[in-house]
């Protein structure tokens, strides 16, 4: 294995330059290092001004997503040695505005996420005396896959549609809407459908499928969106053929 590798970081420091630029660092290669360890090495030993986000180092917090060699990945979950011989190019996630260096602004995603109501919606809460909402293993299985999402936004960075049309609600938010739609305790599917069956919702998706390829948790947002389309289509035909039953819950 090589002793060291060149890492090229796409830097953006608005107080110094209006445009981003590439900066090259030489870092040692250690077998057990992740890409994130190399960035930490740069920050600690070479250049303290480098800005990036990270927290858990174990692939669950979803904050260290970056473009490495043009692909969105969790930098804490990808071995440095797997990217040899280099130079390894590291950029901020695509599709989001860059605040500084590798740090993106996440407001747009956060707004879209809350707009799909990713929580259990009830028309009326069951009284406490009736106990908890019970669920069978099959009912859990119906949505479990979609509940694995860690909001790392790699799917947004992989999605060309989101980059082209920032109004698109996007893969993770739609997959999380499905996570609650398929939950037997939830009653909010109708409200979510009103929000999602719009041109900027599920219908902007053209099933490129890259979101599901890059997802580190195998959520399959692309599949979630297509299933939503099928559902919206059947509801549309029902409401056309049976106008009196339009708001049937």
């Amino acid at each position: 294995m090589a002793d060291s590798v060149a890492i090229e970081v796409r830097r953006y420091r608005p107080e110094e330059k209006s445009e981003p630029y590439w900066q090259r660092y030489e870092v040692p290669v250690r077998e057990e290092w992740m890409i994130l360890d190399a960035l930490n090495y740069i920050k600690d030993n070479l250049d303290g001004s480098l800005s990036y986000r990270w927290a858990c180092r174990m692939g669950v917090c979803g904050s260290c997503g970056m473009m490495v060699g043009g692909e969105p990945i969790l930098t804490c979950a990808s071995y440095l040695a797997d990217h040899l011989p280099g130079p390894i190019r590291i950029e901020p996630l695509r599709g989001f505005p860059v605040v500084r260096d590798l740090v993106n602004n996440l407001d747009d995603f956060m707004d879209k996420l809350t707009a799909v109501k990713p929580w259990i919606v009830r028309e009326q809460e069951q009284p406490l005396s009736e106990g908890e909402y019970l669920q069978t293993p099959e009912e859990l299985d119906a949505y479990k896959q979609y509940s694995m999402c860690i909001n790392c936004m790699l799917c947004y960075a992989a999605c060309p549609i989101y980059e082209l049309e920032p109004a698109f609600i996007g893969p993770a938010a739609i997959a999380l809407a499905q996570r609650y739609n398929f939950d037997s305790r939830d009653q909010g599917a109708e409200e979510r459908m009103d929000h999602l069956s719009r041109d900027e919702g599920i219908w902007a998706c053209t099933f490129v499928g890259e979101c599901s390829v890059v997802c580190p948790k195998d959520v399959d947002p692309a599949g979630a969106i297509q299933r939503y389309k099928v559902k919206a289509m059947t509801q549309w035909y029902k409401s056309m053929l049976l106008p009196w039953g339009e708001r049937k819950r």
């Binding site: 107080e15 110094e16 505005p97 860059v98």
Partner: peptide, 18 residues
Amino acid sequence: MNPEYRLYHPKWHRRKVP
């Protein structure tokens, strides 16, 4: 220093899609 930069006014960079 970048003369276009104003302190405490964040200036985000947006990439153009080719």
